[in-house]
Simulated scan of single mutants.
Amino acid sequence: MSKDTIVIREIEQKDDPKIAKAIRSVLIEFGVPKVGTAYEDKALNCMTETYSKPRKAYFVVEKGNTIIGGAGISPLDNYDGNVCELQKMYFMPEARGKGLGSKMMEKCLAFAKGAGFEQCYLETMPYMDDARKLYRKVGFESIDKPMGDTGHYSCSVWMLKDL
């Protein structure tokens, strides 16, 4: 693979420190609180292990040997129903504006459907405009309150999509 080739693939153990660094970097860039958000998730340091369980997957965007983004699907925590959550979808500046968000959404939602989920839920911040635009474009709709209990109490925008 050339250094300019960009691929979306399942996460591997070697990616764990790279994706943790990328996610935290994007959160800092956007001024997201470090508490009550993905920033403090213990899973960030062991993503491969976290997403190796049934009905879970995490995909990374790789350019050359650099991880420039990622997103995952997991059953929604603390929720009684057949709903998954789009988790930890973040892209470094060099990954934005290239259509990678749409490709990642396609991959994640295809996985969610294949895993048999009926709906997909997500949480985000009100000032992440480009992300919310993308979510709406693929069919997510705003809802009035959070579902389940993800521990991300600082996120104040909740969205849901029927699969």
Rank of each mutant, 00 (worst) to 15 (best):
G139V: 04
E49A: 08
G116Y: 11
Y121Q: 02
T48Q: 09
K107S: 13
G69Y: 05
P54Y: 11
K133H: 13
K56E: 07
A115Q: 04
V60T: 01
G36H: 01
Y90L: 11
I68A: 05
I67K: 09
A115L: 01
G116A: 15
T37R: 00
E29V: 09
N65K: 01
F117C: 01
V35H: 15
M147L: 15
D77F: 12
C46V: 14
K53R: 02
A57P: 02
L109V: 06
N78T: 06
C120T: 15
A131E: 09
Y51F: 14
G97C: 05
K107W: 13
G72M: 10
G69W: 04
Q87A: 15
E118K: 01
R136Y: 13
V138S: 09
A71C: 13
L109T: 04
G116V: 12
D130A: 07
L122N: 04
G64F: 12
F30I: 03
G64D: 11
M147H: 08
K63V: 05
Y39S: 11
G72W: 04
Y127C: 03
E123Y: 10
P146R: 10
G72Q: 06
E118V: 00
P33S: 00
A38I: 15
Y127P: 01
G148E: 12
K133C: 07
M125I: 13
C108T: 06
Y51C: 11
N45D: 15
F111N: 03
F91G: 04
E106G: 04
L134K: 12
M147F: 12
A95F: 12
P33R: 04
E123D: 11
G101T: 01
K63H: 02
A95D: 10
N82V: 06
D129Y: 10
K107G: 03
D77N: 13
A95N: 14
G81C: 05
I28C: 00
L122A: 10
E118N: 00
K107N: 12
Y39Q: 01
G99I: 15
G139P: 08
V138R: 01
E29S: 08
K107A: 05
T37P: 00
F91W: 09
K98L: 04
A71T: 08
P33F: 01
A110L: 13
I73G: 04
G114K: 08
F140N: 07
E123F: 09
M47F: 14
L109K: 03
K113L: 07
P75L: 12
G101Y: 02
M105N: 03
K103E: 07
I68C: 15
L100K: 07
V61C: 03
G139S: 14
A57G: 07
C46Q: 09
G36E: 03
E123I: 07
D149T: 02
D41Y: 02
L109G: 00
M92V: 06
A95Q: 10
G36A: 14
L109F: 10
L44T: 13
G64C: 10
Y90I: 12
Y79N: 11
G36R: 08
K145Y: 03
L134R: 14
G139K: 10
Y58P: 12
E106A: 06
F140K: 07
E40N: 12
M147W: 12
V35P: 15
